[in-house]
Simulated assay, not measured.
Amino acid sequence: MLFLIFLIIPAVYTSNCSHHYNGMDYTRTAILTIKGLPTNLVVNPMNKDLHFTLIDLESLQNDNVQTKMDQYILRENMPIKIDNINGQAAAVDIKNEKVYLASDDGLYTLNSSDKAQFLSNKDQDIVQLFKPNNSEELYAVLFPDNEVYVIDVHNNEKRKLENVPCAFILAVDDDENVFYECDSKYVKMLLKGFQEPIEFVGIPKNSARAITVDNSNRVILAANDGLYWLTPNNIIPGKLMDLDYVPSGIAFNHDEFYLSTNGIIYKYSSEDC
């Protein structure tokens, strides 16, 4: 029991303003250390909850068992496990004040008691979610083919997103341009109204780890060597930050952002710089 208690240690380390993102200085704080790989980070700006999926690395490396994943809320630097769901991702609907949860048995919402409540798509294995701020639609990636579907959450209808063959990571900007990484292991974008995706150059093959949209509608990619700004009008991404670890998740909340790696979630802030 004592061993298990020390697997979770909140806010253990703070660095000075030695981290540089987009030309600005940031402090870095380890707000959580936990056994496993935290990924699929997303912030709820309404209450500052940080949602993440925790992957059990031993099961991930064992081809004979199903990968074990649990859904968590990090609230005031303390992790809360959503224990009535096999969670795999979360998405925040700011306009309708909802949190959607992806599971291996359909789409759920989070109720006021931090419990998962079934919504739709029974028996479907949803592995990724993305909710644009200016749209009523929810983007979902379904296992085993990792095809992308667009879900109308009000009418409980979904349609396949054509011209995106599959996605392991996914983000959609306010102009409905789709950014993703698929079997090619290169990051691509599908501009709205076009049928052929465009491949970004300069990002090493199989190095993309997580992708999101920040509060300024900029698509930010976390790759093995750092953070990149992906824009619809340039196939060469802008390098915003170097990293000395391999990231597994990224999320923004105004001037703060979060990055995760094996066993740790970091918070970056410019407030004290």
Rank of each mutant, 00 (worst) to 15 (best):
Leu2Arg: 15
Ile5Pro: 08
Ile9His: 07
Ala11Asn: 14
Val12Gly: 07
His20Thr: 13
Asn22Leu: 09
Met24Asn: 12
Met24Gly: 02
Thr29Val: 08
Ala30Gln: 09
Ile31Ser: 01
Ile31Met: 07
Thr39Trp: 05
Asn40Met: 11
Val42Cys: 03
Asn44Leu: 13
Leu54Gln: 05
Leu54Cys: 03
Asp56Ser: 09
Leu57Met: 15
Leu60Cys: 03
Thr67Leu: 07
Thr67Gly: 11
Lys68Ile: 05
Met69Gln: 11
Arg75Gln: 12
Glu76Leu: 11
Asn77Val: 11
Met78Gly: 10
Met78Lys: 14
Pro79His: 04
Ile80Pro: 12
Ile82Cys: 01
Asn86Arg: 15
Gly87Thr: 12
Gly87Tyr: 05
Asp93Ile: 15
Asp93His: 10
Ala102Trp: 10
Ala102Asn: 05
Tyr108Leu: 02
Leu110Asn: 06
Leu110Cys: 05
Asn111Ser: 07
Asn111His: 07
Ser112Ala: 12
Asp114Gln: 13
Ser120Arg: 11
Asn121Tyr: 11
Lys122Ile: 03
Asp123Cys: 02
Asp125Cys: 12
Val127Trp: 11
Gln128Glu: 15
Leu129His: 04
Phe130Ser: 06
Phe130Asp: 01
Phe130Thr: 01
Asn133Cys: 10
Asn133Gly: 11
Glu136Asp: 15
Pro144Met: 15
Val148Ser: 06
Tyr149Phe: 14
Ile151Leu: 14
His154Gln: 13
Glu157Arg: 14
Lys160Trp: 10
Lys160Ser: 10
Glu162Gly: 02
Asn163Met: 10
Pro165Cys: 09
Cys166Asn: 14
Phe168Ser: 00
Leu170Phe: 08
Leu170Arg: 01
Asp173Trp: 06
Asp173Leu: 03
Asp174Lys: 07
Tyr180Met: 08
Glu181Ser: 10
Val187Phe: 04
Met189Thr: 08
Leu190Thr: 02
Leu190Tyr: 05
Phe194Ile: 06
Ile198Phe: 14
Glu199Asp: 12
Glu199Thr: 15
Val201Ile: 13
Pro204Met: 05
Lys205Ser: 03
Ala208His: 01
Ile211Met: 08
Thr212Ala: 02
Ser216Ile: 12
Ser216Asp: 06
Asn217Ala: 05
Arg218Gln: 06
Ala223Phe: 01
Asn224Ala: 08
Asp225Leu: 02
Tyr228Trp: 11
Trp229Val: 03
Thr231Asp: 14
Ile235Asn: 04
Gly238Tyr: 11
Met241Cys: 02
Tyr245Asn: 06
Ala251Ser: 08
Phe252Lys: 02
Glu256Ile: 04
Phe257Ser: 00
Leu259Asp: 00
Ser260Pro: 03
Asn262Tyr: 02
Asn262Arg: 09
Lys267Ile: 01
Lys267Trp: 10
Glu271Asp: 05
Asp272Ile: 14
Asp272Glu: 11
Cys273Glu: 04
